[in-house]
């Protein structure tokens, strides 16, 4: 038996809107730790890792570890039917072939339940060890989204370079080139507007902007985004989910042939 009650149901709506176009089908794993997902896009270039810790739910019951295969597009369709202020409850029976999403309005005058069929998905779980990154950039998530969107009008790839001077986003295309440099800025009044650059070693990596733009659909989840870079690793773009966990996107770099 699984029963997860999330007062801030809009979080789950936002998570689904962030990942549904990147990943078609995925297994949601439920354990005592929390509700999690790891999935790759169909070309295995990008990976999504979601964790919603059990403590973040108003009620969390998971009698035994459960893996539920879902079509994310269909799940997003159902969650779209929840109001932004609704309380969302996810229910499933052990060994059952469906999952129920229950939506309660804040004053309990409307209760809806949507039942969705589960599917069998071959799990392709990658082991991702904790890593020390050569450079970590924390910046406003809206600024990161703006940069990715702007650069994708000029070129297909972005070179992200971190040096002592700051972080540079560059692209080139048929019409010309573009460079955007952000410097560390901790002097702002609001912490969510700060840009913080921690650099051990200068690093420069090239990524497909199409994926970066897809990741920025998670912008409504967090005011800040963390971009972790190492020359020998995929980049990690992380959106923290208020006191509950995170949504991380991993993207493999492009290299010169």
């Amino acid at each position: 038996m699984l029963e997860l009650r999330l007062v801030q149901g809009s979080l789950l709506k936002k998570v689904m809107e962030s990942i549904k176009d990147l990943v078609n089908d995925a297994n949601f794993d439920c354990s005592a730790t929390g509700f999690s997902l790891q999935a790759m896009d169909s070309s295995h270039v990008a990976l999504v890792s979601l964790l919603l810790r059990s403590e973040g739910f108003e009620h969390y019951r998971c009698d035994r570890n459960l893996s539920m295969g879902m079509n994310l597009g269909n799940m997003a369709k159902m969650l779209k039917c929840a109001g932004n202020d609704d309380i969302v409850t996810v229910k499933a029976d052990d060994g059952g072939d469906c999952v129920t999403f229950m939506f309660e309005s804040p004053n309990q005058d409307k209760i809806a339940d949507f039942e969705m069929k589960l599917m069998d998905i071959d799990s392709e779980h990658l082991g991702i060890p904790e890593a020390e990154y050569e450079a970590i950039v924390r910046m406003p998530s809206a600024e990161f989204a703006r940069i990715c969107k702007d650069l994708s009008t000029i070129g297909d790839t972005v070179v992200i370079s971190v040096t002592k001077e700051g972080v540079k986003f560059s692209t080139r295309g048929d019409i010309g080139t573009a460079n955007i440099v952000l410097r560390q800025n901790t002097s702002v009044d609001k912490p969510e507007e700060a840009t913080i650059i921690e650099m051990e070693t200068p690093v420069s990596l090239t990524f497909a902007l199409r994926y970066m733009n897809s990741f920025t659909k998670a912008t409504p989840l967090a005011s800040q985004v963390t971009v972790s870079l190492s020359s020998e690793l995929p980049v990690v773009v992380e959106y923290k989910i208020a006191e509950m966990g995170y949504l991380r996107f991993y993207l493999a770099p492009k290299i010169e042939e």
């Binding site: 790759m40 295995h44 270039v45 991702i128 690793l233 995929p234 493999a252 492009k254």
Partner: peptide
Amino acid sequence: GDKQLTMNMFYSFQ
């Protein structure tokens, strides 16, 4: 153009 690397070049299946 550049060559796109994939996830399994960095991480292995569990």
